[in-house]
Design a protein around this nucleic acid. Structure first.
Length: 796
DNA sequence: ACTTTTTCT
């Protein structure tokens, strides 16, 4: 830790004033001085950015903020009344308190306090069951007493559900109502109040707040939890906060909490911040490897599961596979095998128990997801076959055996062809450990890895590649620019993305008009950053009023920002396809989505109607949520909510043209035999079989490029090539388009237009001269008249 | 020629 960390509080206060004499200035000079001014509470930038003065009376008397001990806090926790509310502690509180005192982290409370009191940043490493997520924020609360000077402590989580459930737990632990002293803030749900001093929130939510207040001045401390997840949001937050701590908030405390043994990397990144290691509390898991590599992991997984079922003591099994189809298939086969095993068992031999095979993946409707918590059948066992959702997001108690084939679907981004795709790839060692750990939550367990130990050591990466290196950065770059980070190349990423990926993002934003050639955020870019969607979508929304289709664009963008609404159960594919055809629009999938949403509202959002039509009511509900949020943003930034006349022929043209203004970079032109070629990079692609496009459209725009058994374009709508010249003239300058039929088309249209324009110009020019002549004549007459008038007056 | 992973604003 640097010299700064050892300074006294007085020096810190001095620092605050010298480094930032006028906080308003810092704010105004940032690039996000948008039309939508920050709300007044957010403008309340504290001139006194340091700790509150030591209270001389009241329940906290005797504590010196930033210098307390565990003993002092524990005495108050053990007291009669809750110092934060004044109310007497409940019995339930005391019961929970007793359990909290047994958590591994409790033993290190003083050690933690000592570290954070002498260092601005601390890295904390703790496995599951250590209690770090619930306790550390409370320890800080008792030490910094942020409520005494109107500040808060934030603890960020990568996932919404975690933020919400941990907040609820901690509210109980502190004997307060959720939303009062302890609250949470996630998209669509702000459960906080002016009383809130401890706030759990998603990383994305804190990033949004940072856009309005670059200094995050409401917070006395920020805790980044689950940092090992390395989500894009976590990574950006770490970069921002590191910089903020060093430059503008020397008083801000930062704790980075991580689960894996990768803490040294975090430590190094945070300028050798001190590290606290907290042991976890889980049961031991015995790990087994296969002696030889398995040629087919699905076969091996089924074989292994059956073997466990037949030979191992009671206990449920968790099998990790990669996707929906694979999982459903595996479940069917496991059921079959188990039945066969039971019917074939010899009379004298013990009969193996029944096997309950339950699938688990995110798109599963909630009531089916609930089935993973069903009890195993009498005398038998339960197998949960899951995607990596069971790795971190969902915990199933009672799992004793884990089958880990070592694969998951992972997003990869290829900046050269600007395509994100999902690939079945080997997992990392960290992920493998995480999977194994799922067997030891309630008692000692076993993990069967379907690969060799040598392969684990040699082939698996220690950590999963951070998402930042596997994703399209369009939206992230826009956000960073809006956060006032001008110099992206030198932004302190923990793992810097490939320069080509950054280039692609800047190029995209430039084509969309969000940034200038020099990389400066434009007014359009500032507006775009206000919308919680990718830049192509926000561009569509901003352009919508010009095309008189704000309402329609809101619906389409919302529908494209939730998971697929169309259900297609394996045993009812035909019926589902027929139901979907009812919503089809001849010009493409985007307009079909519009039809679906209208029908959904028209049928009073009825869940029964949804299922009868093979639509997912849950996704439609969230589409409505997204739509409401987006429309609020539009109103806030002053974009009119207008709609065209649906009975006019031009109505759908306007909508399609508006979509083209956002997605003009994703356009393909038909070839023979149902093939298409993408216009800018000459990729051969096929319409995804799910498309409802009825015409043989020559030109189409698409939403997604998917690589599965083939190159497909998904969610496709027919467009007119001429629109491309209107919405992106420089991008579609025929000279810039690769040679081929697409370029020929564009060149022909451009030429026809040029000729037409020349004729029009000449006509206009003639008309103008005629008009001018006429005007001059009239002016002349008027002057004559006036002149005569004057003469007449003079005569009088 | 024949179909989707996870999460967040």
């Amino acid at each position: 830790m640097g010299k700064k960390d050892k300074r006294s509080r007085d020096e810190f206060e001095g620092d605050v004033y010298t480094s930032n004499p006028n906080p308003y200035l810092a704010h105004a000079s940032s690039s996000s001085s948008l039309a939508s001014a920050p709300s007044s509470s957010k403008m309340r930038i504290n001139m006194d950015a340091s700790l509150p003065p030591a209270p001389t009376s009241g329940p906290f008397a005797g504590l010196i903020p930033g210098q307390t001990t565990a003993k002092q806090a524990m005495a108050l926790e053990d007291g009669h009344a809750n110092p934060f509310t004044g109310r007497a502690f409940t019995k339930r509180y005391r019961d929970i308190l007793a359990k909290r005192r047994e958590l591994p982290v409790t033993a290190q409370r003083d050690e933690f306090l000592a570290m954070i009191q002498r260092s601005q940043m601390v890295v904390l490493e703790g496995e599951t069951g250590s209690g770090k997520t619930t306790q550390i924020p409370q320890y800080l609360l008792w030490d910094l007493l942020p409520h005494l000077n109107g500040k808060m402590i934030a603890c960020t989580q990568p996932r919404r559900v975690a933020a919400m459930s941990v907040a609820k737990r901690v509210a109980e632990e502190m004997d307060v109502e959720i939303g009062a002293e302890v609250g949470y803030s996630i998209r669509f749900e702000d459960c906080t109040s002016n009383k809130t001093v401890l706030k759990y929130m998603t990383d994305g939510m804190l990033l949004r707040e940072a856009m309005m207040d670059h200094d995050l001045s409401r917070y006395a401390a920020i805790i980044i939890d689950e940092a090992h997840d390395r989500t894009v949001q976590t990574d950006i937050l770490m970069g921002l906060l590191k910089d903020l701590c060093a430059k503008r908030r020397p008083d801000l405390k930062l704790i980075v909490m991580s689960a894996t043994l990768d803490a040294e990397k975090f430590q190094k990144y945070f300028n050798d911040a001190p590290l606290l290691s907290v042991p976890g509390r889980t049961f031991p898991v015995e790990v087994f490897y296969t002696p030889k590599p398995e040629p087919d992991y699905l076969e091996a997984a089924i074989k292994t599961t059956m073997l466990i079922h037949a030979t191992q003591p009671p206990g449920d099994i968790l099998v990790f596979l990669t996707g929906e189809d694979e999982i459903e298939d595996a479940c069917r086969r496991l059921r079959g095998e188990a039945d066969r095993l039971r019917s074939r068992a010899a009379h004298d031999a013990p009969k193996p128990g029944p096997l309950l095979a339950v699938p688990l993946y995110s798109s599963l409707p909630p009531h089916q997801q609930q089935r993973i918590f069903d009890a195993a059948p009498e005398g038998g066992r339960k197998v949960v076959v899951s995607t990596n959702i069971a790795e971190t997001s969902l915990t199933i108690d009672g799992i004793v055996y884990v089958v880990d084939p070592g694969f998951s679907k992972q997003k990869v981004y290829n900046p050269r062809i600007r395509v994100e795709s999902l690939l079945v790839s080997p997992i990392s060692q960290a992920a493998a450990r995480q999977r194994a750990g799922r067997a030891g939550r309630t008692r000692p367990g076993k993990c069967f890895r379907l690969y060799t130990e040598e392969s684990f050591d040699k082939d698996l990466l220690p950590q999963t590649y951070p998402e930042m290196l596997r994703t399209n950065l369009g939206n992230i770059v826009l956000q960073l620019l809006n956060l006032g980070v001008q110099d992206l190349v030198h932004f302190d990423f923990m793992d810097p993305p490939a320069p080509e990926t950054l280039m692609r993002a800047l190029e995209l934003l430039n084509f969309l008009g969000a940034i200038t050639d020099d990389g400066e955020l434009t007014r359009t870019g500032q507006l775009m950053a206000e919308f919680p969607v990718d830049p192509e979508f926000s561009k569509m929304l901003i352009e919508a009023p010009h095309y008189k289709c704000s309402m329609e664009m809101l619906t389409i963008v919302a529908m494209l920002n939730v998971p697929n609404v169309f259900l297609r159960p394996n045993d009812r594919k035909k019926e589902a396809d027929a139901a979907k055809a009812e919503f089809a629009h001849k010009d493409g999938d985007h307009l079909a989505l519009l039809n679906v949403y209208h029908a959904y509202l028209h049928n009073q959002r009825d869940a029964k109607w949804c299922s009868a039509n093979y639509l997912n009511p849950r996704t439609l509900k969230s589409a409505e949520n997204v739509r409401t949020q987006l429309s609020r943003v539009m109103t806030r930034v002053g974009l009119p909510l207008v709609s065209g006349d649906a009975s006019k022929k031009a109505y759908y043209d306007q909508i399609r043209k508006c979509m083209t203004s956002g997605f003009f970079m994703q356009v393909a032109r038909a070839e023979r035999g149902g093939k298409y070629t993408t216009v800018m990079d000459n990729q051969t692609v096929f319409l995804h079989p799910s498309t409802c496009l009825l015409t043989n459209a020559e030109w189409v725009m698409y939403n997604e490029f998917v690589m599965t058994s083939n190159h497909y374009i998904r969610t496709v709508t027919a467009i007119e090539p001429g629109w491309l010249l209107d919405v992106a003239p420089s991008y579609y300058d025929p000279k810039a388009v690769p040679e081929g039929p697409a370029r020929d088309d564009l060149a022909r249209i451009a030429k026809t237009r040029a000729v037409a324009k020349a004729i029009e110009d000449r006509k206009n020019k003639k008309a103008r001269t005629d008009e001018e002549d006429q005007m001059m004549l009239e002016q002349g007459r008027a002057a004559q008249k006036q002149g005569r008038g004057k003469q007449e007056r003079r005569r009088k």
